Amino acid sequence: MENYTYNSPILQLEGLNVSKDSTYPVLLFLFFSYLFIIVANAGIAFIVFVDKTLHQPMYLLFWNLSINDILGNSVVVPRLLTDILQPPSERIISYYECVVQAFIIHMFNTSSHTLLMIMAFDRYVAICNPLRYAAIMTNKMLIKLTVSAWGVAFVLVGILLGLTIRLNRCRTLMRSIYCNNAALFKLSCESVFINNVYGLTFTVVLFTGSIGSMVLTYTKITVVCLTSKNKSLNSKALKTCGTHLVVYLIMLLSGMIVIILHRFPQLSDSKKIAAVLYHIIPGSLNPIIYGMQSKEIRRFLSKLFDSKKVLPSF
């Protein structure tokens, strides 16, 4: 007969199943990946913050995306690094710390979609209504869109975790590498029907809205580019929109793989690896893709490194 521990303040994470021979290679991979994510995204965020020529809607929205990548990875990777070095029985976390981690992780997931949706709207206005761009994408509008992106994510995730917190817990082992809503409500012996319904609705609405807005936006941009004989406009659209679309597809495919693998319990180890890569791959590639595409960012870096080569004259 299974022993139950009701509302225990301490939970145990299952974590990654890593063999002894693979422990240090995996540890080094995660460490250097996290280091690169922090340095690259913080660097991009710093450049956008200090360079006034980059105080444009597209770059300011990307600044938010970089901050989101830093937060999302900072609550996952450092914890994984410590858990890998611990035996499974010692991978413990307090319930309240687990809830906070789950909240930030779901905020990261949701904000990735909402921010990229707003960036798609920005590209739509820039390409389809270039003469009205400055009038539409004002500072006031940018603040409203940014607050909406974070605000919608905060409310949706708040309800998601609120429905889980209300449940009494009778288990302590979380079959996950990090805290998330599904792993938390599965600790309960009560009915989780409402949690499943809201979680499924949440996912469907988010992905439908995200994919739908991308399809609609890029369909209109494509029509404008095909009907326009302005080569400069088409070149600008290919550069800015192509970069945004690549970033979106990387994020979307990484998330879809995790969701699909979640339906196959026998592939739990593969799901764990996919969940880790969902954070690492977009967080690593986003600053590279946007950094390489942006002439302004490349120009700033070129000036920075050139200034270091110049020796002071006396």
Rank of each mutant, 00 (worst) to 15 (best):
G199I: 02
G199V: 03
L200Y: 00
L200N: 07
L200Q: 00
L200I: 01
L200M: 02
L200P: 00
T201K: 03
T201H: 03
T201S: 14
F202G: 06
F202Q: 10
F202H: 10
F202Y: 14
T203F: 11
T203G: 12
T203S: 14
V204Q: 05
V204W: 07
V204P: 05
V204S: 06
V205M: 14
V205L: 10
V205Y: 04
V205W: 05
L206I: 03
L206P: 00
L206C: 03
F207T: 00
F207S: 02
F207C: 01
F207Y: 03
T208A: 15
T208C: 13
T208D: 01
T208I: 11
T208M: 11
G209F: 01
G209V: 05
G209R: 01
G209I: 01
G209P: 02
S210G: 04
I211L: 13
I211Q: 00
I211D: 04
I211M: 13
I211A: 08
I211F: 14
G212L: 02
G212N: 08
G212V: 13
G212R: 11
G212S: 06
S213C: 12
S213F: 13
S213G: 07
M214H: 11
M214C: 04
M214D: 01
V215N: 10
V215A: 15
V215K: 08
V215H: 11
L216Y: 12
L216I: 11
L216H: 13
L216P: 03
L216G: 00
T217P: 08
T217K: 06
T217W: 04
Y218N: 13
T219A: 07
T219E: 00
T219Y: 14
T219S: 08
T219L: 10
K220L: 14
K220Q: 12
I221V: 15
I221C: 04
I221A: 03
I221K: 05
I221L: 06
T222V: 07
T222Q: 03
T222R: 09
T222N: 04
T222M: 12
V223W: 09
V223D: 11
V223Q: 09
V224E: 13
V224A: 12
V224Y: 03
C225E: 08
C225T: 12
C225L: 09
C225Y: 09
C225W: 05
C225S: 14
L226W: 12
L226S: 07
L226D: 07
L226Y: 11
L226C: 07
T227D: 14
T227G: 14
T227I: 05
S228Q: 10
S228I: 06
S228H: 09
S228W: 04
K229A: 12
K229V: 15
K229R: 15
K229I: 07
K229M: 15
N230L: 00
N230D: 15
N230C: 09
N230G: 00
N230S: 06
N230R: 00
K231R: 14
K231I: 13
S232E: 13
S232Y: 04
S232P: 00
S232C: 02
S232I: 02
L233I: 05
L233N: 01
L233W: 13
L233V: 07
N234E: 01
N234F: 04
N234R: 15
N234T: 07
N234I: 10
N234M: 04
N234C: 09
